[in-house]
Write a protein that binds this DNA or RNA. Structure first.
Lengths: 183, 183
DNA sequence: AGCAGTTCGATGATGTATCAACAAACTAGC
DNA sequence: GCTAGTTTGTTGATACATCATCGAACTGCT
């Protein structure tokens, strides 16, 4: 471990490509949503789970766990969205510390209007470009990496690793057959 | 195109997994760098190309093109990094509008110190978890998606697509066999 | 009941990303 | 050389992410 093992050509091609793709894809998706539905990716990430919940209400805690966000981020985001009328905060009956986050009609309209365009964009920029086998490979990779991220810590390879952190998220932040109405 | 084509199970698995992986991977990489080298991913993204340039100086314009950043973002980031002593701005001789961005000794030390840990982390959290065939698949996917992002516009599938934007980036922002010294 | 430890959410500070507007300097066509 | 249009970089406003801190409320133990 004197000299770190740099990436070889094949590895560098995959890693650089992946990093670049990630960056541009994020940007495009964000732009599309902002342009067509006046929602940021963060807005959408909260609206989708809320729109999928039964009475369109969730505890802030649960919403945080579901998206993998910390309390602070969630609180700030909710405050901004509340100011825009997309959702509202209510006292939680069962736990006086808690806050229920409820989707408003305006929020429902917004997510319903945004979802088809979002899926269409995801398809045209990504999903539809992949063969079924590639989709499966990607899913397998993602799951392997995620399980490494969750449990894999502390083994600290070479230099200054020891990557240990929270990593207690549960589910997706970017659901797709979401706000449309069914789901 | 009445009802948008939602993602089927296979597609959703791949897309959700990909999105989740992306998010957590970003977070971990950012944390690791911040913890071990006191550099943000954005810092690193600028330091790497500078450290690879011959006299460790680049026009802001070129740095912007290379990373795919817009002028504003670059300017803000450079100002902050200059305040920390990681780089410095100089007048550009050949074009009075231009600004040369020069790596300082401190910047060089920082990127040299950060690179091995970064590569080690990239390996342990990602690259080393993939089979060679998977690396190639991923690279192929990335290149296909990127070329779609660059040229592919305006065909506007179903609803509110028409995703057209700048997308004139050129190369990577996250080079790996970078600051170490060789490259 | 009373206390320790924990969970929950809000807040202010700081760093970062994006947008619109701007000014200075280059370039091409006249 | 002058002007119109473009390129280049900066700035301020706004939105967003992260961190440290706080107070209120719940939990479990005694």
């Amino acid at each position: 471990m004197s000299e770190p093992r740099w990436l070889d050509e094949r590895e560098a091609r995959a890693w650089r490509g992946f990093a670049l793709m990630r960056m541009h894809l994020d940007r495009q998706l964000e732009q599309q949503m902002l342009r067509d539905a006046d929602l940021s990716a963060a807005d959408y990430a909260l609206l989708v789970p809320l729109s999928e919940a039964d009475p369109h209400v969730m505890r802030a805690r649960d919403l945080g766990r579901l998206t993998g966000w910390d309390r602070s981020r969630l609180s700030h985001q909710v405050r901004r969205m509340e100011q825009r009328g997309l959702l509202e905060r209510r006292r939680c009956d069962t736990d006086a510390r808690g806050t229920d986050i409820a989707l408003t009609d305006k929020g429902w309209s917004a997510v319903s209007a945004a979802a088809p365009g979002h899926v269409a964009t995801v398809r045209s920029l990504f999903v539809d470009l992949l063969e079924p086998a590639e989709l499966d490979t990607l899913a397998a990779i993602s799951e392997r990496v995620l399980s490494r991220l969750r449990s894999g810590c502390a083994e600290a390879d070479a230099a200054a690793d020891a990557t240990c952190e929270a990593a207690d998220a549960e589910s997706a932040s970017d659901g797709c057959e979401a706000g449309g109405g069914d789901c």
